[in-house]
């Protein structure tokens, strides 16, 4: 099990939070919102394969085929 994806997600989260703060301070609230959404999408794209694996293993464990 590799843990570096957790660190990667944490780093993206921190960066998005800081960018959000900078943009809000500059009075560009709508772009700040957009960056937050973009961060969520990026992180989701990172983990979507793992979620797929999880679902598959759950299916195979409980024989949902």
């Amino acid at each position: 099990m590799n843990v570096d994806i957790i660190f990667k997600i944490a780093a993206v989260g921190i960066l998005i939070a800081v960018i959000n703060q900078v943009l809000v301070k500059a009075g560009r609230d709508e772009i700040a919102m957009m960056t937050t959404l973009a961060g969520i999408v990026v992180v989701l794209l990172m983990v979507i394969n793992m979620i797929n694996q999880l679902f598959n293993s759950v299916k195979s464990i409980f024989r949902f085929y």
């Binding site: 993206v12 960066l15 800081v18 500059a26 009075g27 990026v42």
Partner: peptide, 23 residues
């Protein structure tokens, strides 16, 4: 006053974000 600081920090932060994503 409003945007000079913002652009500077956005450049740096965006670069770090890109580097983290590509790492």
């Amino acid at each position: 006053q409003k945007y000079e600081r913002m652009y500077k920090s956005l450049g740096l932060l965006g670069g770090i974000a890109l580097a983290v994503l590509l790492l």
